[in-house]
């Protein structure tokens, strides 16, 4: 038994070692990718488009209907993300393949999964930066009224999970083609499909009601109500894990 225990401890240590080493590589890749967003104007353009659209819908309710809440902002967010996030992720592998720099990257001492996870962390961090100016709406609401903190906090947490899930799908789409436009369209179609799933339940027979659980919006709206349910978090983490492993597989297959 002792021998088994020692072996188990050794295996756990080794697993921890590998995990720490690999996470280190992913963080280095993340830092590089995150910086690279700001070398080109695309990040600023995407952020501006995002803020103009969400700002318009937020202030429409704020001024027209005197509503001091962010519910409409968070209702619109998943649909906006289906368009904006593939634009953020489309370059992540496509550009590497187009320019040939993937050869540089894949001959460094990093695994494909390190690279994919690093890129995902960078894209999710960028989504965080992109939605952060919307805190200005929150500040406006706090000054003008007294918003319920639960849905607001839940909304932002949900936005990061949703952003991460869509970014992972966008990265998978980006690994399919060296053409960024194709990657964008594929990524948008996949994210839009995930957003749409729970909307089509009304057209399905009653027995197929469970289909809504596959929809991103269903789980996002749960979190945005201010309820942090492990089922919703597991759903988003599953999408991320499956997309990352699939990305790793797609890139590996090219070898």
């Amino acid at each position: 038994m002792d021998r088994i225990k020692i072996l188990a401890e050794k295996a756990a240590d080794r697993a921890g070692e590998i995990y720490r080493a690999r996470l280190r590589e992913a963080v280095i890749i993340m830092k590089k990718e995150f910086r690279s967003y700001f070398y080109t104007p695309i990040a600023y353009i995407v952020t501006t488009i995002f803020l103009v659209f969400t700002g318009f819908f937020f202030f429409k309710d704020f001024f027209y209907y005197n509503q001091s809440e962010m519910r409409n902002f968070f209702q619109l967010l998943p649909l906006m993300f289906t368009f904006v996030i593939p634009a953020v992720t489309m370059k992540l592998f496509s550009e590497e393949m187009h320019s040939g720099s993937i050869e540089i990257l894949m001959t460094l001492p990093v695994t494909v999964l390190d690279v994919a996870v690093g890129k995902l962390l960078a894209a999710t961090a960028f989504v965080g930066v992109m939605i952060s100016p919307s805190l200005f709406y929150l500040a406006t609401m706090i000054i003008a009224g007294s918003p319920d903190p639960g849905p607001v906090i839940g909304g932002y947490i949900g936005a990061l999970f949703l952003g991460g899930a869509y970014a992972s799908v966008g990265i998978l789409a980006s690994s399919f083609s060296r053409n960024q436009i194709i990657s964008f369209i594929t990524g948008w179609a996949a994210c839009f499909f995930l957003w749409l799933i729970d909307k089509v339940v009304v057209f399905l027979p009653a027995g197929l009601g469970f289909v809504q659980y596959f929809g991103t919006d269903y789980h996002f709206q749960n979190i945005a109500r201010g309820i942090l349910d492990s089922r919703d978090i597991i759903y988003f983490l599953t999408i991320i894990a499956v997309s990352m492993l699939a990305t790793s597989r797609v890139i590996e297959e090219r070898r």
Binding site: E25, I28, I29, K31, K32, R35, S36, Y39, T40, S99, G100, S101, E103, I104, L108, P109, V110
Partner: peptide
Amino acid sequence: PIYADMIVLDYLAFLAEI
């Protein structure tokens, strides 16, 4: 085929770190 949008120092620093 090196990352064209980086400056040389940043690129070498990235490599040194990895």
